[in-house]
Amino acid sequence: MSKKYIPSEEYRQMLVRDGDRRFQEWHSRFLDYQRAYREDMNKRRSA
Results as ranks from 00 to 15, higher is better:
M1P: 01
M1S: 10
S2Y: 03
S2R: 04
S2I: 05
S2N: 06
K3Y: 06
K3L: 06
K4L: 07
K4E: 07
K4C: 04
Y5S: 08
Y5N: 11
Y5E: 12
I6R: 14
I6F: 12
I6P: 05
I6T: 13
I6L: 13
P7Q: 09
P7T: 14
P7D: 11
S8M: 14
S8P: 15
S8E: 15
S8Y: 15
S8F: 15
S8T: 12
E9V: 08
E10M: 13
Y11R: 15
Y11T: 14
R12P: 03
R12M: 12
Q13H: 14
M14A: 14
M14E: 15
L15G: 05
L15F: 04
L15P: 04
V16E: 13
V16R: 14
V16Y: 10
V16C: 10
V16G: 09
R17Y: 10
R17T: 10
D18M: 11
D18P: 05
G19H: 08
G19N: 12
G19D: 11
G19R: 14
G19F: 06
D20G: 10
D20L: 14
R21H: 15
R22W: 08
R22C: 11
F23M: 02
Q24S: 06
Q24V: 11
E25H: 09
E25A: 11
E25G: 10
W26L: 07
W26Y: 12
W26K: 11
W26N: 03
W26P: 03
H27V: 01
H27C: 05
H27A: 05
S28I: 03
S28D: 03
S28C: 05
S28T: 08
S28N: 04
R29G: 00
R29E: 02
R29L: 01
F30G: 03
F30S: 07
L31R: 07
L31M: 13
L31D: 02
L31T: 12
D32V: 02
D32K: 00
Y33T: 02
Y33E: 04
Y33M: 06
Q34F: 01
Q34E: 07
Q34S: 05
Q34H: 04
R35F: 00
R35P: 07
A36Q: 00
A36H: 00
A36M: 02
A36N: 02
Y37H: 13
Y37D: 11
R38C: 10
R38K: 15
R38Y: 08
R38W: 02
E39D: 07
E39N: 08
E39S: 09
E39W: 15
D40Y: 01
D40F: 00
D40R: 03
D40P: 00
D40C: 01
M41Q: 09
M41V: 03
N42V: 09
N42K: 12
N42F: 10
K43C: 04
K43Y: 08
K43L: 05
R44S: 09
R44N: 02
R44K: 12
R44C: 04
R44T: 04
R45S: 05
R45E: 02
R45P: 00
S46N: 09
S46L: 06
S46M: 04
A47M: 07
A47V: 10
A47Y: 08
A47W: 07
A47C: 14
A47E: 11
